[in-house]
Design a protein around this nucleic acid. Sequence first.
DNA 1: GAGATTGTTTCGAAATTCGAAACACACCCG
DNA 2: CGGGTGTGTTTCGAATTTCGAAACAATCTC
Lengths: 122, 122
Amino acid sequence: MPTPHPGTPVRGSTTGRPIMAAMDLFGRRWALRVLWELRAGPLGARALLARCEGMSSSVLYQRLRELMASGIIAPSADGYELTPLGAALSPALRSFHEWANTWAQAQEADALKEPLTQSGGG
Amino acid sequence: MPTPHPGTPVRGSTTGRPIMAAMDLFGRRWALRVLWELRAGPLGARALLARCEGMSSSVLYQRLRELMASGIIAPSADGYELTPLGAALSPALRSFHEWANTWAQAQEADALKEPLTQSGGG
DNA sequence: GAGATTGTTTCGAAATTCGAAACACACCCG
DNA sequence: CGGGTGTGTTTCGAATTTCGAAACAATCTC
C-alpha cells in the first residue's frame, strides 16, 4: 500500500495522473478527516485521536506518514500542521463543506416529502 | 456499514454534522472516483468498471447503492448519472483537480531540488 | 523518581476490498 | 426458435485494511 504520488501509477490508474493519485490518497479512511481537523492550525497526535472518534492510532499514524510523504502535512512544534501545499487544499475542503450543507438541506426536504415512516404524518 | 446521512451519527462522529457524514461516505475506496467518472455524463456499470482499473464489481455496486441511497446518483436510461445534488459536487471536484495539479508541480520542483537518488545529478 | 501527558508501535480480531466466476436479461443474427 | 454477444448484478473465498486495546518511550511536573 505505497503512498500515491502524482506521476506514478497508483491503485486505479496506471497513468499517474495527479487527480488519480489524489483520489487514491484521499479515498483512504480518515485521510480527509485528518486534513479537516488540521485546517485551523496544528494539532498533536493525541488531539487528533480525540477529535476523530473511532479512529485507531495505528491508522492515524499510517495516514500521518502518507500525508507527510506527500508533502501535505509536516511535523511542527505543536504537533502536525498543513504545509503550504496542504493549505492549498482549503478551497476544496471548503467547497466540500458547502456541498455537505446542501446535502443536509436536500435530505430535510426529502423527509418532508416522504413521511412514510410515520403512520399519521401531519 | 450503513450509508451515512447528514443528521445521523456516522463513523467518526456522533453529531451527524453533514461534513462528517460526507467524509465517511467519500472516504470509502472508489467513491470519489466513481463521481469523477460520472461528472461528464451517464455511464453504465461495465463502463465504470473499465474506467476504474482494479475496481472490483462487488465494490462498484456497493458504492452505487450508497451513492443512490444518498441521492447523489440515480439510474438513468444510459446507466448511472449524477442527480442535481451530485452535480452540485462539481465545484468541489474541480477544486480538487486543480489542487492535484498543484501537487504534481510541487513534486516536480522537489525532484529538481533533491537529486539525491542519482550520483551525478545534472 | 513517581505520576501524568503525549508520541508511537505492536498485534490479533473484525471489517472492507479484491478477483474471478457465475447468473439473469436483452439484443442481434440466421 | 437457437446461439452468440454485451450489459447488469450477485456471490464467495482470499487478501488487504482498519479496529481496538495494550504497551513502550520520552517529556514535564511536583
